[in-house]
Design a protein around this nucleic acid. Sequence first.
DNA 1: ACAACGTACAACCATTTGGTTGTACGTTGG
DNA 2: CCAACGTACAACCAAATGGTTGTACGTTGT
Lengths: 125, 125
Amino acid sequence: MTAEDEDRADAWFHALSDRTRRDILRRVLAGEHSVSALARSYDMSFAAVQKHVAVLERAGLLTKRRQGREALASGDVEAVRSVGAMLTDLEALWRGRISRMDELFAEQHDTSPDTRHDPTTHRTD
Amino acid sequence: MTAEDEDRADAWFHALSDRTRRDILRRVLAGEHSVSALARSYDMSFAAVQKHVAVLERAGLLTKRRQGREALASGDVEAVRSVGAMLTDLEALWRGRISRMDELFAEQHDTSPDTRHDPTTHRTD
DNA sequence: ACAACGTACAACCATTTGGTTGTACGTTGG
DNA sequence: CCAACGTACAACCAAATGGTTGTACGTTGT
């Protein structure tokens, strides 16, 4: 099911790649806003803002709730956390690179590898 | 200078919005790879992969180092952390919303606020 | 009742994107 | 020396993107 994960990641990062959408997400994370209330904040048509909201909704970064004639949008912090988790995974790959560099150093300079420091607690920055 | 920040964020998220680029970034975070070595991993032309590498480079997510005829690409973990920090900032906005909800709840339902639970330890998920 | 409001969506347009092929140029190994 | 390799970049193309206007339809306030 890695294919669907990549689809979700595509949608997440694409949704976040537009500054208007990031601004909308900030607002709806801070509190519910109707689509037209959001639209009033930007120098573009209502339809344009509505499309941005739809992109964020399809990506799962916000949800809409119908109340009378208004559609109230609310940010989904869990989705934001999931995006952050992807980046943490990327960092982990980098930490693995450092560990391998340590191993290489140990092999080249140390025939008794037991005396090396613990690579899992290695300072990296 | 918020404008440049938004430009950088646009470049970051756009670079990450393509699965081939995310995969390239994973590889170069784990260790240096030449552009042609990367290109061999994907079912597309060398030029296409080279363009993906260029997008990641312009976004500051990887750097290239010239060694002979090869261009060795390496992931920049600091940039990845900066992207993660942006998401943490988004989360903070959401936490502010919850605090405000707690305040409103206290005002409306409780004239002696002592008996309410502690909002700072409020379970949110 | 009905005008104004809020939403949704289709059609259209210019620009960007992600891919291709082709060409040029420095580097390297036999 | 020179053929193969690695890189860079231009030109081109189909599809996606971000914007527009227009239309339709349910909701609300007077």
